[in-house]
Structure formats: structure tokens, C-alpha cells
């Protein structure tokens, strides 16, 4: 034993000691299932162990490539992400700017904005499912009684409307999350920048595009990463709102994987879906990370 360990080494050792339990726990609950999923996806086995694990290579991935329902789920997932994220971002920036101003009842307004975010997604979905209902829902009652529509609109039962209806719920729910992160960024922008701008005769719009927005790039990117990852693995919303319907118009990758695993008990194929989804999200994160690095 080297008793002349210097301070630096001892600090490092203490640090490792503190970090190790966390690393082990994370490895067990995060890394192990990921590896297990990959292993499952390359093999064929029965869930009760009656059929031993047999390596089948890329067979499940080949099935996946020829499976129209998989491509549909992938398209649904991307469409949902591409539609909801920009809307959430625009609304989020608007809300953040609003909450950054001082006005009477500001605390109450902030609370109200956060409310949808605070509720569990499953509950939100159920509330909206009732409001969308075409026989006793709120929207149809208003539309029919005001004469805006002459027959009930089946928001969740129409293949072309269901996705839009789902995006509306997502935007309603998560814009406030975007707003919160952007608000934090807004408050860290030094006031004197705006004063300087005003002295140079900047208009409010110029202030926004030339001072606020460039300085918000960091927080915006962070919000985008978190929300895109969420959107790419969306499950509770389609599960509770539409169950992937009508037909499979709102069946996301997560929902498809869930059905393969828990309804069809095909763990190997389901694992292949999960692995592909993992790769998609991983690629998306890489793109964002590079974007972050270059913009800094």
C-alpha cells in the first residue's frame, strides 16, 4: 500500500467511491435492459423458456423492413414529432415572453400555464377524448349549436383528423414546458443589452430578432432535444386517446412495440422495434448535440 498518496489521488478516490453506487444502479436499470433488448431482437425464444434462445441474426429486422405497419408507425411517429414540436416551440416562446413581462396576476398566469404540464398525460388524454367525442363531446356541442357544423365531427374517428387532434393535445400540454425553459433563458439575458439597443434606436421587433432570439439559442436547443425525444417515444397519448386508431393512423412506434410484446407476446420482434426506435432517437440526439456545439 502506497501510504504517500497525494491529495489529488485521494480526492479522486473519494469521488470514485461516491459515484460507483450510482453507476452500478444506472448500469443495472438502464444499460442491462438495452443490451437485453438487443440480444432478444437477434434471436428467437419463447417467453416461458420452453423454447431455448436461438440466434436468428437479422430475421426480425428483415420482417420489420417488409412490414407495412412498422413503416406506418415510423411515419406516424415522425409526423407527430414534426407537427407538434414547431407549434410547441412557437407557442412556448410566446408564452415565455408574456410571462417575462410584469403585469397584475402574473403568478396566477404562470400557474395556469403550467397546469396542463403538471397533469399526467393519461388523464389529459381522457379529458380530451371526452371533449372530442362526437355524440356528447364539448366541441361538437359548440360546433353544432353555433351552426359551425351541420353534422357531428368525429375528431378521433376520422383518419385525416385524428393526427391533428392528437397534435393539438400535445401542443396544449407541453408548450408550457418549452415556455418554462425559455423563460429561464430570457431571465438570464442582461438588461443592459436592451438598453444599449434602445439607445441605438432598435424597434421592439429588432430587439427580439437581434438580441433575444440569438441569446435564447441554447435554452431553445435544450428544450427541443428533450421534447423531440419525448415525442419520438410518445405512448400514453395515442394509447389513451385513440389506441392507435382509426385504422393505424395514430399508432406510434412505442404503441406498436407494446402491442407486439404484450398483445402478441412476440418479445423478439417487439425488441427489434424497440431497438430501431432507440437508434432513431439516438441519431436525433446526435444531430442536436452537434447543432449545439456549432452554435455555441
Amino acid at each position: 500500500m502506497n501510504r504517500t498518496m497525494n491529495l489529488e489521488q485521494r480526492t479522486a478516490l473519494t469521488g470514485i467511491g461516491f459515484v460507483t453506487p450510482t453507476v452500478i444502479v444506472i448500469a443495472l436499470i438502464l444499460i442491462y435492459p438495452i443490451i437485453q433488448s438487443v440480444v432478444l431482437s437477434f434471436g428467437q425464444s419463447s417467453i416461458d423458456g420452453s423454447e431455448p434462445y436461438r440466434f436468428v441474426g437479422l430475421r426480425h429486422y428483415a420482417t420489420l423492413m417488409g412490414d407495412g405497419r412498422f413503416w406506418n408507425a415510423l411515419a406516424v411517429t415522425f409526423t407527430f414529432t414534426a407537427l407538434s414540436i414547431p407549434l410547441e416551440l412557437a407557442l412556448g416562446i410566446g408564452l415565455a415572453l408574456l410571462m417575462n413581462e410584469s403585469f397584475r396576476g402574473k403568478g396566477l398566469a404562470r400557474l395556469a400555464v403550467l397546469f396542463p404540464w403538471a397533469l399526467p398525460t393519461a388523464l389529459n388524454a381522457l379529458i380530451w377524448r371526452w371533449m372530442y367525442n362526437s355524440d356528447y363531446g364539448l366541441f361538437n356541442a359548440v360546433a353544432l349549436q353555433s351552426g359551425l357544423a351541420d353534422r357531428p365531427i368525429n375528431f378521433l374517428g376520422d383518419t385525416s383528423l385524428a393526427m391533428a387532434s392528437m397534435v393539438v393535445v400535445a401542443v396544449w400540454k407541453t408548450s408550457s414546458f418549452m415556455a418554462l425553459i425559455i423563460l429561464a433563458g430570457l431571465q438570464s439575458i442582461p438588461r443592459d443589452l436592451f438598453e444599449a439597443g434602445r439607445m441605438d434606436g432598435m424597434t421592439k421587433w429588432q430587439e427580439f430578432t437581434q438580441i433575444t432570439l440569438p441569446l435564447l439559442k441554447g435554452p431553445i436547443l435544450v428544450a427541443l432535444i428533450i421534447r423531440s425525444m419525448d415525442a419520438l417515444r410518445t405512448f400514453e397519448l395515442p394509447f389513451n386517446l385513440t389506441d392507435g386508431g382509426p385504422v393505424n393512423a395514430t399508432e406510434s412506434l412505442s404503441l406498436y412495440a407494446y402491442k407486439a410484446i404484450f398483445d402478441f407476446l412476440d418479445f423478439n420482434f417487439g425488441a427489434a422495434v424497440v431497438v430501431v426506435q432507440f437508434l432513431v432517437i439516438f441519431a436525433m440526439s446526435l444531430i442536436y448535440v452537434f447543432a449545439l456545439r456549432n452554435k455555441d
Binding site: N133, D135, Y136, P152, N154, L156, G157, D158, P246
Partner: peptide, 21 residues
């Protein structure tokens, strides 16, 4: 048959019938 039948589960249909609709 209403368009909404495409989103009806047993109890949704039962509710409509029970409401006299």
C-alpha cells in the same frame, strides 16, 4: 348509423341507446 360508431366501445353504444338516441 352515425360516423361516431367507428370510435364506439360497448358502453359508448349502450349509453346512446340508454339515452334514447
Amino acid at each position: 348509423v352515425p360516423d361516431s360508431i367507428l370510435t364506439m366501445k360497448p358502453d359508448d353504444a349502450r349509453t346512446l341507446f340508454q339515452q334514447g338516441r
